[in-house]
Amino acid sequence: MLDIASLTRQVRRNCTLSDARFAGHYSVCGLVMRLRDLYKWEHSLDPYEEHAASQVLDWIGRKETLWETLQESDFDDLVIDGQRIDPFDTETVNRLIEPLHLFYGAGYAHSMKPSFLLATIDRKSAVNGYPVVFLSKEMARDLLTLPALTQDDTIVVRQSAAKLYVWDRMLYLNQSGRPFFRFALLACGIAEKDVGSLRHCLPSVAQVLHDTFLYHEIGELSDCCFNRQIWRDIIAALPHTPTELLVRTVKDVLADTGPHGTLRHIRKTQQTAALGFYAAFLDGLGKKLFPEIRATVAGFMTDGDWQAVAAMISSVHQKAETMAFTIIDLYRNGTRDHDSVWVNETLNRLYIEPLTA
C-alpha cells in the first residue's frame, strides 16, 4: 500500500533542495515575500494571518541554515511501492497516486528553478476541451506561489496557493494600480468605505480572478504564435536574464489576448471587475511594453466601451505576435552562430533599453 507520509517527506525534501539552490536568484524583497508565503503554508495560516516578526525571522534563520547544508545535494528519486521513479516523471507518479486522489507536480519555473508539488485533488472538470484539476490541500510545495499551471496538457488550479497569490498582489499593489483596483472592487459591489479592509475584499477578488487564472492557462495551451518548444529552448539557454523576462512577458500577453485567453474571455462575458483587476495587477515588463492595456481600461472606467476593449485586445495581440516572431528569428540566428550573448544583448537593445530611455 502506498505510504503517503513517506511520499510527502520525499517531495518536501526535493522542494527544500530546489529552494536551497535557487534562493540566491531572488532579490532580498522577492525572497522575503516568498518565504512569508512558505511560512504561512507550513503553519496553516490564512493569507491575512501574521505571526510575530521575531518568530518568522527565527524560522527564516533555521531555513537558511538548512539550505546551506543542502547546496551540493542532488534531487532524490521518488520511491513508491518499491518502485524508484525520476522526480520529473510526473506521468508515472500520477498514475500511481491518482487512485488516492493525489496530484504530483514537477517542472521548471523562472530561471529554470525546479519546482515540486504534492496535493490532494478537490475535483476535476473540462473547460473548452481542456482537462482541469482543482487542488485543495497542498502537502508539499516550494517557494513558488503559483495560482495555476499547465502540466502534461492538463490545467492545474492551486486553490490555496491562489488565495495567497491574490493576497500578495493586493498587499503589494503599487500606486499606479490602485485606481483600477478600486474600480474593480466597486464592480464587485464593495463600497469605497470598505476598500480599506483587504481581508474583507479577499473572497471577492479571489472569486473574480478564478477565471483569470484558468483562461490564462487555456490561452497558453491554445497559443500558436510562440512555438512552445522554441520558447522552452530560449528560456533554457538564457535563464535569469532580461531576455527570459521578456519572452515570458510576451508569451503571457499572447496567451491573454489570444482567441481563448483571459482578456478575450473577459470581453466576451463583459466581466467589468475582472477587467479592472487585470489592469490593476499588470506590472513589470507587461505594463511597460503594453501601456495601451491600462490606457484603454482607464478609458473604459469612464465610458464603459467594450468595443474599445476588443480593439485593444486585437491590437496588443498583433503587437505581441510581431515581437514573438522577432525574438524567434533572432534566437535562431544566434543559435546558428552559437552566440546566446548576442541574442540577449540584441533583444535587450531592441525592447528593454528603450523603456528606460
Rank of each mutant, 00 (worst) to 15 (best):
K113W: 04
L2A: 05
D77W: 04
Q270R: 15
T16S: 14
E192W: 09
Y351L: 06
I230C: 08
K319S: 12
A311T: 10
H338D: 12
H216K: 11
S197L: 07
A184Y: 06
W306F: 13
L355K: 06
M33F: 03
I97T: 10
D256A: 04
D252R: 01
S222D: 15
R9H: 11
D37F: 02
T356I: 10
L245E: 11
Q271G: 03
L214K: 02
D81K: 09
D152A: 14
D256P: 00
S111R: 07
T257I: 05
L66H: 05
M139Y: 07
T249H: 03
Q151M: 15
Y104A: 03
S115H: 06
L173R: 04
I313N: 06
L7K: 01
L102W: 03
A357L: 10
A274H: 02
D3C: 02
D153R: 15
H25W: 11
F290G: 00
Y165L: 05
M170C: 11
R21M: 10
K287Q: 15
R294S: 13
A126T: 15
D252W: 01
L144K: 07
D223W: 03
K163T: 01
L263C: 09
C201H: 11
H240S: 11
R34K: 12
M312H: 05
C201A: 15
A311N: 10
L66S: 13
R264H: 12
L45E: 03
M312P: 00
H260W: 11
D142K: 04
Q159R: 14
F103L: 07
D211R: 09
T154E: 15
G261I: 03
